[in-house]
Design a binder for these strands. Structure first.
Lengths: 144, 144
DNA sequence: ATGCAAATGCGAATGAGTTGCAACTGTCAA
DNA sequence: TTGACAGTTGCAACTCATTCGCATTTGCAT
């Protein structure tokens, strides 16, 4: 628990220093985001934040998410055919695997793939600004 | 030219057999799509189709694109922060590299990456239904 | 404590895409 | 060739996710 709180303390401090006011609404969202291990979308975050800040509006949630994203605190993911989903930024980039049956998101990372990507881009005279890789997957059933 | 026409002939035939009427609007869109080597979005396809079928409506374009997509004739790509873009399906899957400065789309393919993706999914007990990989890139400048 | 720019809540607006519906038109059978 | 009729079209109205305008409120530096 102290870990999470410490993380949020640091964050609020950092935000304040970036000239961004830490309002009740924002604190609540930071808390909700830090506690989330799924990748919630805006309405879901709104729902969760409402228990801490009852009247919080959805626009505020959207605005805060944009702010936090541009501060590099969270990441926005636009998976196929679904509203944007968010996750706190942790050290170390990763990609996503979406279970097409449940909507669950797993994270993974492959240095080897990243390296190949960079090679391919370089061959064509480009450098990678960023990339997006999503595997839409289905659980392998024992029998079938 | 005969190549393109032959391709379209085959397609219209295939559509007819799938119980899908080949209307003027659809023929026009098939032609526009076959002729496109960029990855146009719906309004752009609408613009191009209008020269052949003057009154064609945007809804028809959207409807036709959905139809053609579900027939496996074209593919829809949802790149970051942009409306969907379309391309005819050609044999051989490929991924995309988007020049963030110009919006140009290059295609590429890497068996090695695909293999790694499958391995990663398999390790976690999943099989890949499909994937999406997009490299957002910038041209490497000689000096700078 | 106080001022004020920044942030909020509300509702209205946006943009991409979809849909209901009456009028139209490919297509297949005769 | 001609019907007939289900599939299509154009239009306008709608949805859904997200953004914006604006009057009111509120962090927070002083």
């Amino acid at each position: 628990m102290s870990e999470t709180n410490a993380g949020i303390e640091n964050l609020t401090e950092a935000l304040r220093e970036a000239g961004i006011r830490v309002t009740r609404q924002r604190a609540a969202l930071l808390g909700v985001l830090a506690a989330a291990d799924d990748h919630p979308d805006a309405p879901e975050l709104h729902r969760r934040a409402e228990s801490e800040v009852p009247g919080i509006s959805l626009s505020t949630v959207y605005r805060t998410l944009s702010t936090l994203e541009s501060q590099g605190v969270i990441q926005r993911h636009q998976f196929e055919g679904a509203p944007a989903r968010f996750e706190p930024v942790e050290p170390g980039h990763h990609d996503h695997m979406i279970d097409v049956e449940t909507g669950n998101v797993l994270e993974f990372c492959s240095d080897r793939i990243e390296k190949l990507q960079a090679e391919i881009a370089a061959e064509l005279g480009y450098e990678i600004v960023h990339h997006r890789m999503e595997l839409y997957v289905r659980k392998i059933t024992g029998s079938a």
